[in-house]
Write a protein that binds this DNA or RNA. Structure first.
Lengths: 148, 148
DNA sequence: TATTTTTTGTTTGTATACAAACAAAATTCC
DNA sequence: GGAATTTTGTTTGTATACAAACAAAAAATA
């Protein structure tokens, strides 16, 4: 007799939600999101923060490229940029050299927001990794990098 | 001179998006979601699948408890249950012993969907973990469990 | 040059995810 | 028994996330 425990329908066999990576990736992501929302300045979301950080490095990139560098597809990055623009952290202008492109650049207010968010950002990463010792943190980062 | 590279504004110091767990948790979750959507039967989403699997184990639980066991808050599990109910995979009824509770149970069609989804589900986990060897898979699961 | 393909951005629709505010029922505490 | 608290579920609003369909511009190719 295999996979037919008395009080469980045999449909699932040995399959358990608690054995699947996807389940834990979702849980870990949720926990991180809560920590992020609890610490970040100006109510910036993880994706908004990612976009601002990239813009602080590049100062000006096309909207889709910004999305690629921050792991967001075209539809998602558009919403993020729109919301950042509405708050004055980012400015958009048509690319004079390419009629398709929308150039996105960070404003001085956006830079100020990055400055306010930097300490919280470090805290967020530290708090997320708090359950792990240093070797485990390195291992997790390595494994996630391989996975993505 | 620290943190002031020539072509980078010094705002960020040593902070890099690519060093933060949150960024990789998001990326890994996205990759898993794509793999999931590419293989799962009946167009079931990860959360819908999680709910169905839990219901296949329990057969009948309250809506909020189902949410807790599948890592969804009250508002989220409601939407998931509503959509599963609309497709006939799940049935809801008021709990006779507790006027607040909504009892959720899996239907025979829901069980059939779980049967159809089981092989894809195993494939999804395998494909997600493909970049890692066996020791790394165990390590990742352990670390994510500690994290969540 | 003309056609095809690719890239870029937009819009719509569906599905998480959570905060906050709310109502109703059950439980706890005095 | 009665009041305060907790639990359960709903609704609204905001923000990802992606598929699919579309349009416009640029690049590649014949």
């Amino acid at each position: 007799m295999v996979g037919g425990a008395a009080d469980h329908p045999s449909v699932l066999g040995d399959y358990r939600l608690e054995d699947q990576v996807g389940f834990y990736l979702r849980r870990a992501g949720q926990r991180h999101a809560v920590i992020f929302a609890g610490h970040m300045a100006d109510g910036l979301t993880p994706t908004q923060w990612a976009a601002l950080v990239k813009l602080a490095e590049h100062h000006s990139v096309s909207q889709n490229l910004l999305g690629r560098e921050t792991a967001m597809d075209a539809a998602t990055i558009k919403g993020v940029v729109d919301r950042l623009a509405k708050r004055g952290f980012v400015a958009t202008s048509p690319d004079p050299d390419d009629g398709r492109r929308m150039r996105v650049s960070i404003t001085s207010e956006g830079i100020a927001a990055v400055q306010r968010g930097l300490e919280p950002a470090l805290l967020i990463t530290a708090e997320t990794l708090k359950p792990l010792d240093m070797a485990e943190r390195r291992a997790l980062l390595d494994l996630l990098r391989k996975l993505a």
